Simulated scan of single mutants.
Amino acid sequence: MKWSKGTAERVRVLVLSGNLGDGHRQAAKALAEASRLGTREAVDTEVVDFMQRVYPQLQHVVKYGFLKMVEKTPSIYGYLYHRTKYDEGLSPLFSLFLRLGRRALMRLAAEYRPDAIICTFPLAAAAVSLLKEEGRLHVPLITVITDHTDHALWLNPATDLYLVGSEQVASALRARGIASSRVAVSGIPVAPRFHAEEDRTVVRQQLGLQPDMPVVLVMGGGGGLLSEGIRSLLRSEAVCAGMQLVIVCGSNRAVMRELEEELAHRPSGRVRLLGFAEDIHRWMSAADLLLTKPGGLTTSEAVAKALPMLLYKPIPGQEEDNAAVLMRAGVAVQAEGGRALTDQLLELVHDPARLAHMRGRAEAFRIARPAERAWEALQPRPQPELSMSKAR
């Protein structure tokens, strides 16, 4: 990428994230952390929540509506997702929504005066692209796709470069007519700490876990995971007696309270409940298996840690796409709806050969240092026609 200021001065990069799911924020934080590593061109990064700054009055309504639709009517969400996956151009309603935030986004750009804008949130990428198309903004736009899929919502005419998680996504973008010069396979950005090698026995001792008993980490994204399936694990004597469960509830205090009440009736010293965990990379290092929904960031962190996954109830749409990619890669299996989750979990945990095979597949599938590779993809390239200021 050819920065507008050249290499003699520091470059200002605005990273726009969003609050519809924790993955967009985590990817933005990973990019910001990676920008401070190494001796590459000096970069000052600022991470901003697009929804909070551009739609302060609407953000809570939009987030509530999105989460409720996913929770209560996932089939409708899935229908809308697939219906719009290959849409060309903006719908009138979506275009109106973006235009409502135009002035606030221009104020944000004027405040930070960025030399480039990176978006880990599709609505932010669409809004920046619209301003560029209208001639109101003249900086490179880089879109980081945080799922293993190519939904049209991520794709916008004024995007200069797409950073994608796999060659499969890159091929899908090229099939849509996007030039190879505008696509780079960097991996989905995860914090550099997820690539650190850690001794499992030592980490388990430091976290207060028994070193010689299997550890299953349960995650459901930033909002936490609670369902009859998870309750069934807590009610299973075979599960609670035969392994250590670490359940991450995220920032959802209601989930934490409900699980605490569940455990009050079935006390077990082998079940740990966590809220939002900054050291989740250490819990992944300690675990034998991750039970999770297939969000792009959580699963990418697990792949970086070569942690086998059991995928549970993917949301129709991008989570189903993610699950398909991960299963084809051999790094995950998906829980079958017709079988008890406890049976499938016990089957995997007590099959060390299969878990070892999945770890090996994860090591082959993962892309080393994805957040740092993202910055490397943005460095000046020798061919002038690939300059970000000229790419279209």
Rank of each mutant, 00 (worst) to 15 (best):
A104M: 09
V128L: 13
G135Q: 13
I117C: 05
Y112R: 08
A126V: 01
L130W: 02
R99C: 05
P114V: 06
K132T: 14
V128D: 07
L137G: 06
D115N: 10
L137P: 02
E111T: 11
R103M: 04
L105F: 05
E133K: 15
A126D: 08
T120E: 11
L108M: 10
R107F: 06
M106P: 02
E134P: 11
Y112P: 03
A110S: 05
P114M: 08
I118Q: 04
H138I: 07
L105S: 06
L108S: 07
I118P: 01
A104I: 02
R113N: 10
S129H: 14
P114L: 09
S129C: 11
L123H: 07
Y112S: 05
Y112Q: 09
G101A: 01
A104S: 12
A126Y: 00
A124R: 05
L100D: 03
I118Y: 06
E111C: 03
I118A: 04
L100F: 07
M106N: 05
E134Y: 11
R136L: 15
E111L: 11
L137K: 13
A127P: 01
L131R: 15
R136F: 13
G101H: 00
A126H: 01
C119Y: 06
G135N: 11
A116N: 03
Y112D: 06
T120D: 07
A104V: 02
A109Y: 10
G135T: 11
E134K: 15
A110M: 07
H138V: 05
L137M: 14
G101C: 00
R107A: 08
L137F: 15
L137D: 06
E111M: 07
V128R: 10
C119I: 08
R99T: 01
F121M: 00
A124I: 03
F121I: 09
H138M: 09
L130F: 01
P114Q: 04
M106R: 14
R136P: 03
L130H: 04
A127L: 05
Y112E: 08
L100V: 10
R102V: 02
E134V: 09
C119T: 13
L131V: 12
F121Y: 14
R113P: 03
L105M: 12
E111R: 14
L108Y: 12
G135P: 08
A124E: 03
F121A: 03
I117M: 09
I117R: 02
